[in-house]
Simulated scan of single mutants.
Amino acid sequence: MLRLCRACSSRLVLQPTPPISPASFYRGTSSFLHLKLFQPTTSRRRSVFQPASPYDSQCRSAYTISAQKLVSAAPLKWQPYLRLMRADKPIGTWLLYWPCTWSIAMASPPGVLPDPYLLALFGVGAFLMRGAGCIVNDLWDKDFDRMVERTKSRPLASGELRTRQAVALLAGVLSGSLAVLLQLNWCSVAVGAASLGLVATYPLAKRYTYWPQFVLGLTFNWGCILGWTAVHGDLSSWAVPAALYFGAINWTLIYD
């Protein structure tokens, strides 16, 4: 490699640059990354790589920020119940809802958009059932949550809510979920009711098995089957939703 330098007042001389060893390149790159990316900035404009707060390091999305604002704007008595349902962390609802939409879209006739009414029903159902799962999870784990830094501020672990209040909320959420489910055909009602066993036992999978993510995949992607039966009314063509369900389980294993 050659470079141009000024050896005197006006004459340019070509001089060879010394070769760069891999070790020198690594040290230089590491120093650059350390100085440019991880040192605090004094500029008022936030750097792309510089978190503004500890929460930003968790890559909060706009949905999460909006949900937290809504929960904060709710009456104070409601806020512990909303946080128990993880209403301030909506990503779980999306992860439950997306497989439902995929299944509904695949089950729709060719050239026809998915039914908006069905999508809305499943959206409400995903929110309620995700909340029910979180309540069950916290009821199982409240004693352990008190000893973990990340979970000790949850409403049950911190003592904000009592067990009977959580059970009452769970009954209300499940009643709302049942009301949504009854809007579908009877095959879908049976398929939806079958998911309750997975919802109730997932917390135990974390304690007694080495594959809690697999049980989470079975639970979170049940909508692949439910969405199909909601459109077709049966599982006669079971191969398509089964393949979608299997693929979505692997997707959960990867992201979790």
Score class of each variant (00 low, 15 high):
152 K>P: 00
153 S>K: 13
153 S>F: 11
154 R>Q: 09
154 R>M: 07
155 P>C: 02
155 P>L: 05
158 S>N: 11
160 E>Q: 15
160 E>T: 02
161 L>I: 06
161 L>V: 10
162 R>W: 05
162 R>Y: 06
163 T>C: 15
164 R>G: 10
164 R>P: 00
165 Q>P: 07
165 Q>W: 06
166 A>G: 14
166 A>I: 13
166 A>T: 15
166 A>R: 15
167 V>L: 15
168 A>F: 14
168 A>M: 13
168 A>G: 09
169 L>T: 09
169 L>R: 14
169 L>G: 08
170 L>S: 14
172 G>S: 08
172 G>P: 03
172 G>N: 02
174 L>T: 08
174 L>I: 09
175 S>I: 03
175 S>F: 11
176 G>S: 10
177 S>K: 12
178 L>W: 15
180 V>Y: 04
182 L>Q: 08
182 L>N: 04
182 L>P: 13
184 L>S: 12
185 N>F: 04
185 N>V: 06
185 N>S: 07
186 W>V: 14
187 C>E: 02
188 S>Q: 07
188 S>M: 08
188 S>G: 15
189 V>I: 15
189 V>A: 11
190 A>P: 01
191 V>K: 03
191 V>T: 13
192 G>P: 12
192 G>C: 08
193 A>L: 15
193 A>S: 14
193 A>C: 15
194 A>C: 07
195 S>K: 09
196 L>R: 08
198 L>G: 13
198 L>W: 07
199 V>E: 01
199 V>S: 05
199 V>Q: 06
200 A>M: 10
200 A>F: 10
200 A>S: 10
200 A>D: 01
200 A>N: 04
201 T>L: 13
201 T>E: 11
203 P>E: 11
203 P>V: 04
203 P>S: 07
204 L>F: 10
204 L>A: 06
205 A>H: 02
205 A>I: 00
206 K>W: 02
206 K>Q: 10
206 K>C: 01
207 R>C: 02
208 Y>Q: 09
211 W>F: 06
211 W>D: 00
212 P>M: 00
214 F>Y: 10
214 F>Q: 03
215 V>H: 07
216 L>Y: 05
216 L>G: 09
217 G>P: 03
218 L>C: 08
218 L>N: 02
218 L>Q: 06
219 T>Q: 11
219 T>R: 06
219 T>W: 03
220 F>I: 11
222 W>C: 05
223 G>H: 04
223 G>D: 01
223 G>I: 13
225 I>N: 01
226 L>R: 02
226 L>N: 03
228 W>E: 00
228 W>S: 01
228 W>V: 05
228 W>A: 01
229 T>Y: 00
230 A>S: 13
231 V>I: 13
231 V>F: 13
233 G>P: 06
234 D>Q: 05
234 D>T: 07
234 D>I: 08
234 D>G: 08
235 L>C: 10
235 L>N: 04
235 L>E: 10
236 S>Y: 12
236 S>F: 14
237 S>M: 05
237 S>Q: 08
238 W>G: 02
238 W>Q: 00
239 A>T: 10
239 A>C: 09
240 V>N: 02
240 V>A: 07
241 P>Y: 14
242 A>V: 10
242 A>F: 10
243 A>L: 08
246 F>P: 00
246 F>V: 14
246 F>I: 12
246 F>Q: 10
247 G>N: 11
248 A>M: 06
249 I>C: 12
249 I>M: 13
250 N>W: 11
250 N>V: 04
250 N>R: 12
